[in-house]
Design a protein around this nucleic acid. Structure first.
Length: 729
DNA sequence: GTACTCGTCATTTTT
DNA sequence: TGACGAGTAC
């Protein structure tokens, strides 16, 4: 394509970002401001104008989906083979690096990648072996400890252990480290750490890559963790230009290590001169953007940005106050039907919520009204147990030393190898410092038609019979030979899993088509490549795709997407913002960003709703409208109703309304104690006896001050502040 | 080994 | 409320 053509439709800021020379820059790209376009156009432009060859480009994204999208869009701009470019997730790129330099990284070339499940089961197994009480040391905590250490760049021996407890954790970490090394397995955090160490310890290698990647681009920079940032520094060196694109207002993954503060650090450490703000929004209409802008304005830790649109104000934001979660769902379904009737595609309607538990009522209502819908979340394809079983057989073919895989299938389908035999194997393996597979092979002997010897034979014959087959044939053969298909077919309750096994053959075929022609020096083995693919991208996590259906998902899952119409439901204190977040550092601001992300998903129509009562954990809870609703200017909102039920009339709703017509409870109906301590509706409190709860109703002052509190455990209580030991949470 | 019961737990999640 | 894991009984 002619450069003039693809540069033509960019706005001035986008153009400046795209055509920036070789210098580090921070692009603050607001929601819907065309950041992917900027990224891909820049890469195309750099190559087109000869500033760099494809091999000199490194682009990092957070999801495989984003990486794929980027490659597709670059290919549509440029007639080049994008293969020379390194575009991928942090983990994908680390994998590539480690495969290419496995010797230097002290790994077998065919190392296997453990997903979170595998990692946890490895830890559990190890702890059992070491006789560690899993009550005192919950395996999940151990996993968290290990990953946390790795995220700080620490090996087991580097971890500070001031007390016995930590020391014990460290011991397990050490054992885990050794176990992985023995098995040739690598977890997600290890991919990062290992490749970081590879680069930092191997100067020639580091220089090689630093010389190669002249232009480094990072997408969703606000989501980088501290360690990922260090990793970037390592590969970028001092000379190279890092082009970081991100939006601090959309940082919603702090809970899993994202550190938006990297943006400021980056500006400082990379001597960034150019900070370009992309503020023109091409997605939402004015009212929606105004609401988003005002809301996010309540956050203090911001780099500062204001979205605007060339389009008109559009429709007002609709606000619905529901009596109950049931009523809320009912309302949403009615509106959805009306929208669909007006010609909006069902797939252009999204139903967003803070936590997955909220989807149930909504699903139920949609189902009853026979509105087609699709729920995102839940198990992903490669995480399903039947698929993991099948993959375990594949893994054993590729590498029999893989204890995790062996344990997974040594007795699945059942073949008479009980817990005792397995313990014996583990015992033998530990004593002699060998793998379970080796121990199993030695246990040969008398009757090779049963038990462990039969299993050894089975795996070996599988390996022989599959040599020479292509990947899909191998998968198909293993499914049969292992007895997996027969097992599931025979099952009454799990027969549907056979479909997924068949789907695995399709996945193998699809994988072959996509990757086999492009075998690289880093990845000569198709089987390992496929297993890596399975671990690194677990596949879709949406149920039944296809079909035009309403989309249900958490706000987190909606990031990066857009819809004609968006419903944000459950806007109650305790849910959104989530009560747990209030205890966290920067928690409330992150919740507000979440709300910001949710709002900016909508193109034309936005519905906000809350319910005064909601079934949660089997208990009826009375909620108070989210403070975020009060932060949105009233003039942008159009109340659909005022609450009318008896329940509503007798509860918090009777308090004077400062916001009048919107039906939003005021921010300050409060009760004050003699000592001057005040409590207000919606506030989270802690009671000495009843534990945590939310204030639902306040009345009186001084010695007469009373509050009604909905306690998490014990439900509604009316307390006289004079006596109750109530503290703000 | 499997089917059942009981107890526990309950944001958000990609790689 | 309901999903899941561990433990128990056959």
């Amino acid at each position: 394509m002619n450069p003039a053509t693809y540069l033509e439709h960019l706005n001035p800021e986008q153009l400046a970002a795209v055509t920036l020379g070789r210098q580090s820059a921070l692009i603050l790209a607001g929601a819907g401001s065309g950041k992917t376009r900027v990224l891909t156009t820049r890469i195309a432009h750099l190559i087109q104008t000869g500033q760099v060859s494809p091999g000199g480009v490194l682009a990092v994204t957070f999801t495989n989906k984003a990486a794929k999208e980027m490659l597709t869009r670059i290919s549509s701009l440029l007639p080049i083979n994008p293969r020379g470019m390194w575009v991928g997730t942090f983990h994908g790129l680390c994998n590539r690096l480690l495969r290419a330099h496995h010797r230097e990284a002290n790994l077998p070339q065919l190392f296997q990648i453990l997903d979170a499940q595998d990692q946890l089961s490895t830890i559990k197994r190890l702890m059992k072996l070491l006789n560690i009480d899993d009550e005192k040391f919950p395996p999940k905590q151990v996993m968290y400890f290990i990953n946390n250490a790795k995220e700080q760049g620490l090996r087991a021996n580097d971890v500070d252990a001031p007390d016995d407890m930590t020391q014990r954790y460290r011991d397990i970490y050490l054992a885990y480290e050794q176990q992985c090394q023995r098995e040739g397995t690598v977890d997600f955090a290890e991919l990062l750490l290992r490749s970081f160490e590879l680069l930092s310890r191997n100067e020639p290698l580091r220089q090689h890559y630093q010389a190669r990647f002249k232009f480094i681009l990072v997408d969703e920079f606000q989501d980088t963790s501290r360690f990922q940032y260090e990793w970037l520094k390592q590969i970028a060196g001092k000379e190279n230009a890092v082009f970081a694109v991100g939006d601090d207002d959309q940082s919603i993954y702090a809970f899993r290590g994202a550190h938006a503060g990297n943006m400021q650090t980056f500006v400082r450490e990379f001597a960034v001169e150019k900070i370009i703000k992309l503020e023109q929004n091409y997605r939402s209409q004015g009212n929606i953007l105004d609401a988003a802008n005002v809301l996010i304005g309540h956050n203090s830790e911001r780099l500062g940005k204001n979205l605007w649109t060339a389009e008109g104000a559009g429709e007002p934001i609709r606000l619905y106050a529901a009596d109950s979660d049931f009523d809320e769902a009912q309302f949403i379904v009615e509106e959805i039907r009306a929208l669909i009737k007006d010609g909006v595609a069902a797939s252009q309607i999204a139903l967003l919520y803070r936590s997955n538990a909220q989807s149930r009522v909504l699903e139920h209502a949609l189902f009853s009204a026979s509105v087609p819908y699709r729920v995102y979340g839940g198990l992903r394809f490669f995480e399903r147990q039947e698929v993991k079983h099948a993959l375990a057989y594949l893994r054993l073919i590729a590498n029999p030393e893989d204890d995790t895989a062996l344990l997974r299938v040594i007795n699945f389908p059942t073949r008479g190898i009980g817990a005792r035999s397995i313990e014996q194997l583990q015992e033998a393996a530990r004593e002699q410092g060998i793998s379970l597979w080796q121990a199993a092979c030695m246990k040969g002997g008398k009757d090779s038609t049963k038990g462990v010897p039969a299993f050894v034979l089975l795996i070996e014959s599988m390996r022989h019979e599959t040599t020479g087959m292509d990947l899909a044939e191998q998968v198909e053969h293993l499914l049969q030979a292992s007895g997996l298909v027969a097992h599931y077919q025979a099952s009454k309750t799990e027969a549907d899993r056979v479909e997924n096994l068949e789907e695995l053959i399709n996945a193998a075929n699809a994988f072959l088509k996509e990757y086999d022609g492009e075998r690289t020096e880093e990845m000569p083995d198709t089987l390992t490549a496929f297993l890596t693919h399975a671990a690194l991208e677990a596949g879709d996590n949406q149920a039944q795709s296809g079909q035009d259906a309403v989309q249900l998902m958490t706000v987190h899952a909606a990031k990066g997407l857009e819809f004609h119409s968006v419903f944000i439901s459950g806007l109650e204190e305790g849910l959104c913002p989530h009560e747990n977040s209030l205890f966290e550092q920067d928690g409330l601001e992150e919740e507000r960003r979440l709300m910001y992300v949710a709002i900016t998903r909508a193109r034309r129509r936005l519905y906000l709703s809350f319910a005064q009562s909601r079934m949660l954990h089997g208990q009826l809870r009375y909620g108070v409208p989210s403070r975020f609703l009060q932060e949105i200017p009233e003039k942008l909102l159009k109340p659909i109703n005022a609450p009318q039920s008896q329940a509503a009339a007798s509860s918090a709703w009777e308090e004077p309304r400062t916001l009048g017509s919107t039906g939003i409870a005021p921010g300050s109906p409060s009760a004050e104690t003699e000592t001057g301590q005040t409590f207000r509706i919606g506030q989270n409190v802690l009671h000495a006896k009843f534990g945590p709860g939310v204030i639902v109703h306040c009345h009186g002052r001084g010695v007469n001050a009373e509050v009604e509190v909905n306690f998490r455990q014990s439900g509604m209580k009316r307390l006289a502040l004079q006596y109750a030991k109530l503290n703000p949470a």
